[in-house]
Design a protein around this nucleic acid. Structure first.
Lengths: 347, 347
DNA sequence: ACGATCTGCTTCAACGATAAAGCACATTGC
DNA sequence: GCAATGTGCTTTATCGTTGAAGCAGATCGT
């Protein structure tokens, strides 16, 4: 039983030989071409089913000049971004849309240091994907621009104001950040606020910081010492607080650029004997899972990552189908999720 | 500016024309064939670099009869399994190994209802992947057997005792489950234990349940009413407890088959005014992230999913390279992570 | 009744890369 | 001095699929 089945790879020729026509006729029959007789068509289809014929994706790709594949590109090391459940949601969104279109999903992650090209440049040049969803790109990543200019259909998740031709789906980070900051100010009367920002080489980090500052200015609050730069990791949230030493007493509210840092901050505050939300209100951003399960649960902005990905994917398929008339920038609404860490939810 | 760059796809012919040799010579030059003169080789390589040549993956795949791709197959709906961060870790492990081997990673998820074949059967028959990592397969999934018999190199993550020829990497769920149960018994003196099991159509669910029962029997404890079947979701952990009503008083320890259910159970216990770990000790399984961040943090078995995936991937590459002499079943060690929910960690 | 259209296939070329075989010409061995 | 070997390419065939073009024989229109 062992090796038998292995080599027998069914091609058009096998069907052709069995039915007694040419491979080309089989191809046309399977494609439903009406120039092939009704009878032949049926016989061919039966034979194909019986032999378990599946077209060779390589031959098809070569002949038709498209791969039947889209790529999900994450231009950082796997450990960095995969570590955030964000990616899982994106994958889920892209995957389901790809499946609906009967297209394979390729995951492209690490830089391909072997050839000095980014992995996704290879994907693009080798035509192993017909289009790409790009996410988590840094502002200054020069390869992104080349990717877009290459003519490969690309839809990006996030905001890229410096790339005017890019097709993007994102949320209004700045408005959302302002909104959650104002919640702390107007609902909870917090006036001495600290922002733990994300990495500022990503647009998201900049926008969330700016939204925070917008809120401060709108309410005439002090911007002095209001910002500490983090890196989106839980430990950077912890460090942000511990580095403050006793100056933490100057603050009564913390706006973190994501939930991981909010959680890190809360942990550190707790260990210093400070209660959240009694002594300080803390809020996060993202709501990818963590914010719901911690104690206190974290008030945050819900970012619908899966929906971002599925919308991006749908748009990508439109573009690949030649429909270039749709939107180029799409912003989907987000909402606050009020939980315990600001003082809203039941304790 | 629009359409210009698009069509210019660089092939061997372009390099050949520029250098003044045939495409075949270029191919050989790039492959480092010594029958091509030193000078020509250098000129060709320079031209290739300058033009930005990247081989067509489709043409290569067709000619060489292999795709340059491995598939990560998850034979369930995306929402079910992707929902667990397990998949993220597996992806990370597989992805990094694939990258090291300069091979693309294909994600195959949903059944392809269009043709009545599982998506991965198409992957296999269409030869769009040279090998596959298969995870989260149900015990009775008949397509798994066909996949293995097809001759496509496959390495599975998990244990599949009913598939004697399968190459698998897993952990000893039964021993680990027994071990964490015994921790509750011997260290914390818990004697009235409840197991919230996983789905029993997966080997993991069965093994973890059996390990729990092993511990009970070894210590002469009562098996009556000791098992409730859950489905690995947080809510099934909650339901398992709430459905018990006041009979929860009969128990002093809960062994959940994963952390999500443990967390659900703890939440429900809390809301009933029961303290964990004072009134009851609770433990989970997996340690994929959740267990560390809850309050109380959850004592659990750390399952190194990423390592499982990378070991599986390495073995897959060995097999694809023709080395069939390695192990067929590999079990990697796991360890308990003692935290607060059993009564061990600092509160 | 005889060119025009239809029907049902076959033939052919191509997608891009590659390995085997071939073919000149130069060099070497004895 | 002439076969044997080496060098540096070119020619050719192939992977599996597909669409255009070709080609018989039947059917139709007037």
């Amino acid at each position: 039983m062992a090796v038998r089945a292995k080599s027998t790879r069914v091609t058009l020729r096998d069907i052709a030989d069995r039915v007694g026509v040419t491979p080309s006729a089989v191809s046309q029959a399977l494609a439903g071409n009406t120039r092939i007789g009704e009878d032949t068509r049926r016989v061919v289809r039966d034979a194909a089913k019986e032999l378990g014929y599946v077209p060779s994706s390589a031959a098809r790709a070569l002949r038709n000049q498209h791969a039947g594949t889209i790529a999900l590109i994450v231009p950082t090391t796997a450990t960095h971004v995969f570590g955030h459940s964000y990616f899982m949601l994106v994958l889920e969104g892209a995957s389901s849309v790809a499946n609906q279109h009967d297209v394979q999903l390729l995951i492209s992650t690490n830089p391909d240091n072997d050839h000095g090209l980014a992995a996704y440049e290879r994907v693009m040049r080798s035509h192993s994907a017909d289009g790409a969803i790009l996410t988590s790109a840094a502002i200054d990543d020069p390869t992104v621009e080349r990717l877009i200019d290459s003519g490969l259909p690309v839809v990006m998740i996030g905001n890229f104001p410096h790339l005017p031709t890019a097709i993007t789906v994102g949320i209004d980070d700045r408005a959302a950040s302002r909104s959650i900051t104002e919640h702390l100010i107007t609902t909870h009367g917090r006036t001495r606020l600290l922002h733990i920002s994300g990495t500022l080489d990503h647009q998201t980090g900049v926008d969330r910081r700016d939204g925070f500052l917008d809120a401060l200015r709108a309410h005439g609050l002090d911007e002095e010492g209001a910002i500490v730069e983090g890196d989106l990791s839980e430990s950077s949230g912890t460090t942000a607080i511990s580095a403050l030493g006793r100056r933490i007493g100057d603050y009564d509210g913390i706006v973190a650029a994501n939930d991981d840092m909010a959680h890190g901050a809360i942990t550190e505050l707790k260990s210093q004997g400070l209660n959240v939300p009694t002594h300080l209100s803390v809020v996060g951003f993202d709501d990818f899972g963590l914010a719901r399960v911690t104690t206190p649960s974290i008030t945050t902005v819900h970012v619908p990552a899966q929906r971002l990905a599925s919308i991006a994917s749908e748009r990508l398929f439109e573009i690949m189908a030649g429909n270039d008339t749709g939107w180029h920038r799409h912003t989907i609404d987000v909402h606050l999720v009020l939980r315990q860490s600001c003082g809203c939810g039941p304790l």
